[in-house]
Simulated assay, not measured.
Amino acid sequence: MAAPKSAATANRQEENLMDGIHDTGGMTGYGSVAYQKDEPYFHYKWEGRVLSLLTWLHLRGVSWWDKSRFFREMMGNENYVNEIRNSYYTHWLSAAERILVSERIITEEERKHRVQEILEGRYEERNPTREFDPADIDKALDALHEPRSLVLPGPDPAFKPGDEVRVKNMNPLGHTRCPKYVRNRVGKVVTSHGPQIYPESSSAGLGDDPKPLYTVSFKSRDLWGDDGNERDIIYVDLWEPYLVSA
């Protein structure tokens, strides 16, 4: 789904300039990953509701995935990582609340009032204002799973498979899909995927702004030094503005 332009999101981006957390690979001090055998899709009923809410916002064009990722990052790095230990969906809930306020669907006062009701045990579950037509649900699921190409009209790629590239040593302001652990590292282009939605522009509400996307391979030891396994190769999808010729 194309990312519409949104002045509200663009203004919000200006107010929250940062090099947000995107990928915690290579970072230490956060403890081990907890593994649960036969883990359920949702640990709590509210998690499924949060997923449904953000999916609804996406289908209505109020939000889109890059935008929701950016709003999740507004939690700040410490909260972002700590909340993973509690529930992944706290990220989604935080994003949904911020998006609803940013797009003026609810006010910040209304959001705070509802949170206070819950904290004080005064919240009573409301019945839906209308029943959903099962046909609407089927239509939404079909839209989510409809096969479609992600390639959009845009500039020709500057690199081709086999080219060596260096990831820029950068600290962008705002949302980015460029992990910190590959910045200023040299890799090799494996696949050119063509122009696709550029996350930096999309998350800021500035439209699709398609840029060529590549899969780039990195030797493990080029990223992690002697701690890396010499046999391992890491593949990362990176947009052209992140890259220069090596």
Rank of each mutant, 00 (worst) to 15 (best):
T55I: 11
V167A: 07
V165H: 04
H193G: 06
P4T: 03
P153D: 08
H145V: 11
Q36N: 11
K180S: 14
W224S: 10
S68D: 11
S192P: 04
G25V: 15
P153R: 01
V167W: 05
Y89L: 07
G76A: 00
R49H: 15
E125L: 09
R60H: 13
R148K: 11
Y35G: 07
H43L: 08
G25R: 15
K67W: 09
V244G: 02
A143K: 11
N169I: 02
T176K: 06
D133M: 02
N82S: 14
R185P: 01
P128H: 03
R122G: 10
R69F: 09
E109T: 13
A96K: 03
Y88D: 09
A7P: 08
K160P: 06
R49W: 09
N16I: 07
I99C: 06
D133I: 04
D136E: 11
E97Q: 12
D227M: 15
G174D: 01
T24H: 09
V244Q: 11
D237T: 10
S32M: 13
T215H: 09
D163I: 05
Y242F: 15
V244L: 07
R231G: 07
D232G: 05
V244D: 13
H193Q: 05
E108I: 10
P157F: 03
L100C: 07
S63T: 12
V244N: 06
G228N: 05
P147D: 08
L223M: 01
I84K: 12
V33F: 11
I197N: 00
N169E: 15
G205E: 01
L57D: 07
L141A: 09
S220K: 03
I118Y: 06
Y35C: 15
N82P: 07
N79K: 15
G121K: 01
D136S: 12
R98T: 11
L238S: 02
E97R: 13
R60E: 15
V182C: 01
V62Q: 03
G174M: 00
L53N: 03
L152N: 05
I137S: 04
A246D: 13
K5M: 14
V244C: 04
G25H: 11
H91D: 01
S6F: 05
Q116H: 13
P161N: 07
F42S: 02
A158W: 09
A2P: 15
N229Q: 13
T9G: 12
